[in-house]
């Protein structure tokens, strides 16, 4: 199984015990989990714990997840809740200095919905990339390399003429906008809470 396989394939396969399908789901959504944890400003160790708990919970939730497309929303909600639990639980054992004005916000503060939406939108962009044909995806990824690659280097790696890179980039982005992942992004791309 590949991370680019549709969720409708990966989720039932993982439910049946396919480790490679599970790994593909993990690879696909770890960046989203990591982004949400980062926004909550947990310590590295607490972040590791939250991440592991989210995946353990997903393992036991797979059987109940009948609609694979609900997975991103479930992951977002579960990760956020687990971050809030840990922030609150840790604040009991590590009292906050009231003089430290930032401290209280840090433990009590929820993360703004707009930040969660932005994290989910970046997830949708990764999903959209995964939907593209391999050639076009590879071209976009090479164009995103930091530091940038020269066009003749990209041309050599993909074995395409230099002159076709610009037009192919434009077509790839046009196709990206029409992917299922990005068409799903309406005014409220997140949809209902799971």
């Amino acid at each position: 199984m590949e991370t680019t396989d549709p969720l409708a394939t990966l989720v039932p396969a993982a439910r049946e015990g396919d480790q490679s399908a599970w790994n593909a789901i993990v690879d696909r959504f770890l960046p989203l989990v990591g982004a949400i944890i980062r926004r909550h400003r947990l310590s590295e160790a607490d972040g590791d714990d939250v991440s592991q708990t989210v995946w353990l919970r997903l393992v036991e939730h797979l059987g109940a997840l009948r609609e694979p497309d609900a997975l991103p929303g479930w992951i977002r909600t579960t990760t956020r809740n687990e971050c809030l639990r840990v922030l609150a639980a840790r604040s009991r054992t590590r009292p906050v200095d009231p003089q430290d004005s930032g401290g209280l916000d840090a433990v009590a503060g929820d993360v703004a919905d707009t930040e969660l939406l932005a994290a989910e939108r970046r997830q949708a962009l990764r999903e959209a990339l995964a939907e593209l044909p391999a050639g076009r995806r590879e071209l976009l990824l090479l164009l995103l390399t930091d530091p940038p690659l020269a066009y003749d280097e990209i041309s050599a790696r993909l074995d395409i003429p230099i002159g076709s890179i610009g037009p192919t980039r434009a077509r790839a982005l046009e196709q990206l906008r029409r992917t299922r992942a990005l068409r799903g992004l309406g005014p409220d791309p997140v949809g209902g809470v799971v």
């Binding site: 990591g34 970046r122 962009l125 990764r126 995103l144 930091d146």
Partner: peptide
């Protein structure tokens, strides 16, 4: 935006 998504 893609760059930010891939970086993540």
């Amino acid at each position: 935006e893609l760059a930010a998504a891939v970086e993540e």
